[in-house]
Design a protein around this nucleic acid. Structure first.
Length: 923
RNA sequence: GGUCGAAUGGUGGAAUGGUAGACACGAAGGACUUAAAAUCCUUUGGCCAUUGCGGCUGUGUGGGUUCGAGUCCCACUUCGACUACCA
């Protein structure tokens, strides 16, 4: 029999499917293991070979855990809402649901061909009403809760209302948008609208008038993690700041917990660090500065309280509420002009334009420690959204303040001994204080660290400020002006938002005629007919963002068909949380923050039993494209081979990597590739046309996309799986390069030849030799430890070594080969299954037991010691493995080569590392 | 600018502080074959020696710790990822 990958793979994929081999049930008698892939967005382009990298790694782990007796939950689904389907719909009029369904079908086909062990009965799609019912439900719960900072968890908003009735805002401990002050009586006299507005200040899901990232081209607002460098991540369109009424999630309330709980997670240090930076805890102080000749007091935030004696001016964000309060009449016009100018710049323009700009308000503030008068400016380098939107500027010790001071010719007072501030500021937090002597506080001579502490203590005592911890993490903007997303379960009565009752969910996405905003500029849902409650109240026109559906999907997999809860208590108590989560780093500040927030919220409500959703996280690297180039001589249809191109004036042109093999162009296929190349001529080297290459993102426009289907067709899924693992460590990014795939394919054929010679099965029950036992037990040990440590690439090498050894040993022993197949089953399940049955098993290899290695077989009879003198010049000695170190020493010193090296010199030290080295120090 | 990570042959990559370069690709030579494919064998970091079994050198650069450093420490160079006017 010959190794025919197509027959084998089709046969076993059908068998696994028909017999529901990978179906998972809750089973309290067995330990559970939940291993999850980040589910894909089903794009129109289909999967390329980069996508399955993480899926293969997790599939190997899932199969391995199963073989070790765990009850493994390994599901898959689709993050089906998203912008590309909607934009395609705008262009073609095709309903996004239709294209999404088609794309899912294509994805499923591609995934199936690779032989994954997903339990497809648990598949979920975020656009399925039975699923998004629970997304809507969670939103309602967030609306109905606030975050209590005293107990550090979410509490019902009803509690807060009761408190208001009795005590007003006095004594509340609630995360809030802004501080409010009202009495119980004032609360009583508020009308429905005012009460609603007041409660919005505290709800975890709230309607807020906030500064948002508005992308005109996409016609929607975007969350901070969907914007990078001032342009939208999807499409790269410019984004500007706008004040809009939006649904928001009070993620910031959970910032301390999101930060602290990172410690417990088995995530890579780099991704934890990314989250830490994103949450951005900074300890500092808030301080009040009085405005001269006015009642206004401005609050600023600083982490450098020690530098207060070096404050020579203050700066307000253009959007700051203080601007109107302090600007003098004669400066009003100039300030307004500046604010308008800033308002019309996009975020991107503000970033590119690093020029210092700003305007004087006419006001002077009084330094609370030195009593000096200092001018107040407005500038866009101060952000409205962070701290209080106002800063005290210390040009000597902050580079941004320094640039501003130089531009407006403001004084610079150095505060640290030896700091040279003639050319640039001294930003380091170290050194000894000078020039910091005020009427009540003297910091001179202190170290910076102590000066910060002393100043904080002083301002708290004097009531001019307080110690404050700020977080960079902002609330998540939760509205999108799009069609293809979850509708909000919200209706409006007299302009006040109300939630649907849970029993009325899901609120289904309506049909519309065109997927564009309405003529009046409302979101696409404004086109829906009868988009109102039974009583005629209008419904919310926005939809939820992409991260809504992906924030709790891992919980739904535990209990995907439950009609009465997101996840039932029994299922949740058993599966708890994800033991191993595999996905890309690009979600570090998006999905992985939102999911943790969402999970913590549900945990506070007692709906889930674990505080964190993903216990261990592995970030697979990205597979980049490896593009190929041909070199056309300018103004001709003649192409010159890579190593000859320096003699010509050439234009490099991307060429489809699928007509290039090992960087050699298939000339005939190239002529047929595009009509303009039909008459192409070539200047060859050694009879071949050699292409150049470059590593780039894998994309259609670079003609470097490799479809896994083609690899499966040609080499088989097992080869694809092994090869993707063999390429290098899973966590590392690397270009896709098929140059080595033949080696992996050869390995499978060699494995096959251990079992078959022609049609004859070679397997026997002879006593296995000691060296065969050693080979297989070495492999068991290596593969077991490698899988536990996610070193799949070295595992694949170990398989190759073992098969080579068994081949040269002519080992066809059934027991040895059985162990080999079980070890291989996670990596190459089809061929393992085929051979497993060929040697007489009638159960599936997926139900076998993982073999244990026996150290007895691994023991060496003899051990090689490397002998060195002063760490140099070595020779080897071979001694019995159980010889004690002192005997080894004697034997080495008696060795003829030792005499040569010692040559009468004194022996100072002899070091024997058991089994490894003998080092003799002479001199 | 900040944070984190990386640097090893022609290539992808191996090496609990202990004989660097496993394994694979590619390349060269050979066997089988009328020929090709497939398969198998040999060589393959560099330099020198190759009718002697060897010698020298070598993990981005410069220092350090150690009997011994690709591995640990310090500084630098280059590259990558993330983030970015966060006071």
């Amino acid at each position: 029999m010959e190794y025919k990958h197509k027959d084998i793979e089709q046969r076993w994929q059908r068998y696994w499917k028909d017999n529901k081999v990978y179906k998972t049930e809750t089973d309290s008698t067995r330990p559970k293991f939940y291993i999850l892939d980040m589910f894909p967005y089903p794009s129109g382009a289909g999967l390329h070979v980069g996508h399955p990298l993480g899926y293969i790694a997790s599939d190997i782990f899932a199969r391995y855990k199963r073989l070790r007796g765990f009850n493994v939950l390994h599901p898959m689904g689709y993050d089906a809402y998203g912008l590309p389907a909607e934009q395609y719909a705008i262009q073609t009029g095709q309903h996004p649901e239709v294209t999404t369904r088609e794309n899912i079908t294509r994805y499923r086909g591609q995934l199936d061909r690779i032989g994954f062990c997903y339990d497809w009965d648990r598949e979920i799609r975020t656009c399925d009403p039975q699923y998004y019912k629970w997304t809507q439900w969670a939103f309602i719960e967030m609306f109905n809760h606030y975050f209590d900072t005293a107990v550090n968890k979410a509490m019902p908003i009803k509690n807060l209302e009761k408190h208001f009735e009795k005590y007003g805002s006095e004594g509340i401990n609630a995360a809030q948008t802004k501080p409010l002050n009202f009495t119980a009586e004032e609360w009583q006299y508020m009308d429905a609208r005012q009460k609603s507005d007041t409660l919005m200040n505290y709800r975890l899901a709230y309607l807020g008038n906030t500064m948002v990232n508005w992308c005109a081209k996409l016609g929607t607002v975007l969350a901070n993690d969907e914007v990078s460098e001032g342009v939208s991540i999807r499409g790269g369109y410019p984004v500007e700041q706008r004040l809009m009424w939006q649904w928001c999630l009070r993620v910031s309330a959970y910032a301390p917990r999101l930060l602290d709980d990172l410690e417990k997670l088995e995530w890579s240090d780099s991704i934890k660090e990314t989250q830490r930076n994103w949450i951005g805890r900074s300890e500092g102080a808030e301080m009040q500065f009085k405005i001269k000749d006015s009642d206004v007091e401005m609050t600023i935030f600083t982490t450098r309280a020690d530098t207060v004696f070096g404050v020579t001016f203050m700066v307000l964000a253009p959007e700051s509420k203080y601007v109107d309060m302090v600007t003098t009449a004669d400066r009003r016009e100039a300030v307004e002009a500046y604010r308008n100018e800033i308002k019309h710049k996009t975020e991107r323009e503000r970033m590119i334009d690093k020029k210092v700009s700003g305007v004087f308000t006419g006001a002077y503030a009084i330094n609370p420690l030195s009593g000096k008068e200092i001018p107040v400016y407005v500038s866009d380098y101060v952000l409205a959204g962070y701290g209080t939107g106002a800063i005290m500027a210390v040009p000597a010790h902050d580079s941004r303040d320094y640039a501003f001071a130089r531009h407006f010719d403001l004084p610079v007072i150095p505060l640290i001994e030896g700091a040279d501030v003639s050319e640039e500021s001294f930003d380091a937090k170290e050194g000894r204080m000078i020039n910091s002597d005020g009427p009540e506080l003297n910091l001179n001579g202190m170290e910076v660290k102590d000066a910060i502490a002393a100043t904080k203590r002083f301002i708290e005592e004097k009531g001019i400020g307080k110690v404050k911890t700020n977080y960079r993490l902002r609330d998540a903007i939760f509205s999108r002006q799009r069609y293809w997303g979850e509708p909000f379960p919200v209706y409006y009565k007299d302009g006040i938002p109300y939630m649907f009752d849970e029993s009325q969910l899901p609120l289904q996405l309506p049909e519309i005629d065109k997927y564009l905003p309405t003529e009046t500029g409302e979101p696409p849902l404004g086109r829906a007919k009868n988009w109102q409650t039974a009583d005629g109240y209008p419904l919310e026109l926005n939809t939820m963002p992409g991260f809504a559906g992906s924030s709790a999907y891992y919980l739904r997999y535990m209990d995907p068909h439950n009609d009465s809860a997101l996840v039932g208590k029994e299922a949740n108590d058993y599966w708890r949380n994800v033991d191993l989560y595999v996905g890309g780093t690009e979600h570090a500040t998006g999905h992985l923050i939102y999911s943790r927030f969402w999970n913590k919220f549900l945990y506070d409500l007692g709906k889930v039993c674990e505080n964190e959703p993903f216990r261990k996280l592995i970030n697979q690297g990205m597979i980049q494209g490896r593009s190929n180039f041909v070199y056309r001589i300018k103004d001709t249809n003649k192409f010159v081979s890579y190593n000859l191109k320096k003699d010509y004036d050439v234009t490099p042109i991307h060429v489809d990597v699928n007509i290039v093999t090992n960087d050699v162009l298939d000339i005939e296929k190239f002529r047929g590739w595009r009509p303009e190349y039909a008459g192409a001529e070539f200047i060859l080297e050694e009879g071949k046309y050699v292409c150049g290459y470059a590593v780039e993102k894998m994309s259609k426009s670079m003609f470097n996309v490799v479809n896994p289907d083609d690899i499966v067709e040609r080499y088989g899924a097992d080869t694809l799986r092994l090869y993707e693992m063999f390429l290098g460590p899973v966590e590392q990014s690397k270009p896709w390069d098929t140059n080595g795939i033949d080696g992996v394919n050869r390995f499978i054929k060699k494995l096959w030849n251990l079992f078959y010679k022609g049609d004859m099965l070679l397997v026997n029950d002879d006593e296995p030799s000691a060296e065969s036992l050693k080979s297989i037990h070495k492999l068991i040990k290596k593969v077991t430890t490698d899988i536990e440590g996610f070193s799949y690439n070295t595992s694949v090498s170990a398989f190759m070594i073992c098969v080579n050894e068994l081949t040269s040993q002519k080992c066809h022993n059934r027991a040895v080969l059985s162990d080999l197949l079980v070890l291989l089953a996670p990596f190459a399940p089809h061929v393992a299954e085929e051979l497993w049955h060929a040697i007489g098993n009638d159960t599936t290899v997926c139900d076998a037991a993982w073999p244990q290695w026996n150290e007895e077989y691994l023991k060496e009879a003899n051990v090689n010691y490397a002998v060195s003198f002063n760490g140099k010049a070595r020779f080897n000695v071979s001694v019995a493995a159980d010889m004690p170190a002192s005997e080894v020493e004697k034997m080495v010193l008696a060795h003829e080569n030792s005499a040569r090296w010692i040559e009468g010199k004194q022996i100072r030290k002899v070091i024997v590392v058991p089994g490894k080295i003998v080092n003799i120090v002479v001199g």
